[in-house]
Amino acid sequence: MKVKHFFLVLLVCLAGCQTTPKVLRETKPLVLVTIPPYAYLVNRIAKDRLKVRSIIPPATNLHLYEPTPREVAKMGTARLWIQIGEPFEKKIFKALHEKNPQLESLPLWEHTRLLTSDDSEVLSPCDGHSGHSHEGKDLHFWMSPKVMLSQAYLITETLSKIFPEDSDLFHQNFQEVETDLEALNKDLENILEPFKGEALLLSHPSFGYFCKEYDMVQLAVECEGKDPRPRDIETLLKNAKKYHIRAVLTQAGFNNRGAEMISKKLGLTPHEVDPFAYSYISNMLKIANEITE
């Protein structure tokens, strides 16, 4: 199992870290985030006061990603880890915390109303199981600017408690983030207004919150990361034809074959998007424009 191997690598690296503290000492406090969009938020809120590191790179399948020993070692001095609820986070955090008791976690999913599989339609040969959830919940909550705004405030408050000397700066910067996220939401509403009720055909179910927010339908074609069998394609195609599909969206690092085969039969051109991209606001606008093309 990749996670078990990762955990063993982590323990070895952390043990090594204890003998070479000067190599890993940061000039600024280190904050970890699981995915790049939260690195963007923390950098906007903290400016140059903190060093921010995303564990998962952009355009990567976080279910399959395995950090290198050097990447694991760089986590050892962190003061905070902003987490999204992925299973690997708990094990890694425990190992890190044993070596670095100062490390704190901010479990964003505990402060978010999570969607369930009932909130989206999954076109899958696996009887509706998408293979990405926290106890059956959808963890792609950053795809809603409104959720991101509430989480940005939570991050601001958490950073202020850990680094009280910079609290005023964090809150001042948050006001700019708040303005920008509110503007983003309005822009997305205006862009997507003509397409309410239409569907997005996706290789991976990353758009549940996005579709919920802007009154669209998420149709995800996924079977635990595996290609749909030939006999499944016709069934998937028949189900897809029940909806008016606005766009077909694929993701780098994920298995896109099922969505690509269905889009070809429907005469649609797939568009590759990256929900994990760092530049959150510009990326969300880019995704919206891909949908409207």
Rank of each mutant, 00 (worst) to 15 (best):
P69H: 00
T292P: 01
D118P: 00
L106Y: 04
K238E: 14
K91C: 05
K90Q: 13
D166G: 04
V31C: 01
P125V: 04
I281S: 01
R44Y: 06
L11Q: 15
W81A: 08
D180I: 09
G197Q: 10
P101M: 03
I82K: 08
E222C: 07
L80M: 10
E66K: 13
G131H: 12
L62G: 00
K2A: 13
N256A: 06
H271A: 09
C17M: 07
D215Y: 01
Y214Q: 05
K94L: 14
A183M: 13
V3N: 11
K74G: 08
Y65I: 07
E121I: 15
K226F: 06
A152K: 04
K146Y: 10
K226W: 10
I55K: 01
P228L: 13
S133H: 07
L32T: 01
M1C: 11
M143F: 08
E86N: 10
D166S: 14
L30M: 03
G253E: 05
R70V: 14
S54A: 15
M143P: 05
D166L: 01
G136P: 02
P205A: 13
E224Y: 15
Y38M: 09
E66G: 10
K99R: 12
L236W: 01
T112E: 08
E86T: 08
K161G: 01
K146A: 12
M143G: 01
V177T: 15
A59I: 05
S150F: 04
T77H: 06
L149Y: 09
L184M: 11
F254L: 08
I92R: 02
Q218P: 06
L159G: 04
I287L: 07
N190Q: 15
F195A: 09
G136E: 02
A277E: 15
A95P: 06
Y209C: 14
R79T: 00
K186S: 11
T158Q: 11
V9Q: 12
T20K: 11
P58N: 09
P228M: 04
G136K: 02
L64A: 13
H97C: 07
E260N: 10
H129Q: 05
A199C: 03
Y153K: 14
W81G: 03
H140E: 13
V72A: 14
T68M: 03
E121R: 12
V52K: 02
E135D: 04
S120H: 12
N61E: 06
T19R: 11
L188V: 07
H132Y: 12
A46I: 00
E121N: 06
Y38I: 03
S105G: 00
T179Y: 06
P101Q: 05
D232A: 15
F210N: 08
I287W: 00
D232G: 10
I155C: 10
K265N: 12
P194A: 11
P270M: 09
L50F: 00
T250S: 10
F163T: 03
L188E: 07
K241L: 13
G136N: 01
